[in-house]
């Protein structure tokens, strides 16, 4: 099993570039049991860190789960948070991933009300530009799906915001370390 990681002075430096949703991306590999998420959330809440996004799913080995967390808060305290999470018996490992070392993706669904063909065409053009898909189409509405890096999703949202968006749902980012790195 992966050994728990020791912090170094390098960890105390603020992360290089916060991406657009929250500042930091953490991945955790944890026991797949009730209550584990509660333990983890308490570590963050106690130290006034907000969890901006959270994705939990069963790992390839069903005894474990994968978590990806988008976190904002004081970067100086983040290495402490990582150590506190690592200390939990149910946490196998916890890493922070820098954008250059990891693939980060998320998916958004956006429901736009479109009255009239002109607006609909404009929305479809934007969606096409971002490689999105129309997943639901009615006389008055479109649901589009955009996926990719968080900044791409953000960019699409910025363009679509001029239209009549009624709902958006984002999965939150999932992360995987590049190359031989461990997620």
């Amino acid at each position: 099993m992966a050994t728990k990681r020791k912090i170094t002075t390098a960890d105390k430096k603020p992360a290089p570039r916060p991406d657009l949703i929250g500042g930091h991306t953490l991945s955790m590999y944890v026991n797949n049991e009730p209550g584990v998420l509660m333990r983890i959330c308490q570590v963050f809440a106690r130290r006034a860190y907000n969890i901006d996004s959270l994705v939990v799913s069963q790992g390839r080995d069903p005894r474990f789960s994968r978590l990806t967390l988008g976190i904002s808060g004081d970067p100086a305290g983040l290495s402490q948070i990582i150590m506190q999470c690592t200390k939990l018996i149910d946490v196998i490992h916890c890493f922070e991933h820098m954008p250059q070392d990891a693939v980060v993706r998320e998916l958004a669904m956006i429901k736009v009300m479109v009255k009239g063909g002109e607006k609909r065409t404009e929305v479809l053009q934007i969606v096409e530009h971002f490689g999105g898909k129309t997943v639901d189409l009615t006389e008055s509405s479109i649901i589009v799906r955009i996926e990719g890096a968080s900044d791409k999703v953000d960019a699409a949202m910025r363009l679509l915001v001029t239209y009549d968006i009624v709902e958006t749902v984002r999965t939150g980012k999932v992360v995987m370390a590049r190359g031989e790195g461990i997620t």
Binding site: I7, T9, M83, T86
Partner: peptide
């Protein structure tokens, strides 16, 4: 013995 005690109060 506890890595999370490092840099917690004193570096």
């Amino acid at each position: 013995i506890d890595p999370s005690e490092m840099n917690k109060m004193i570096t």
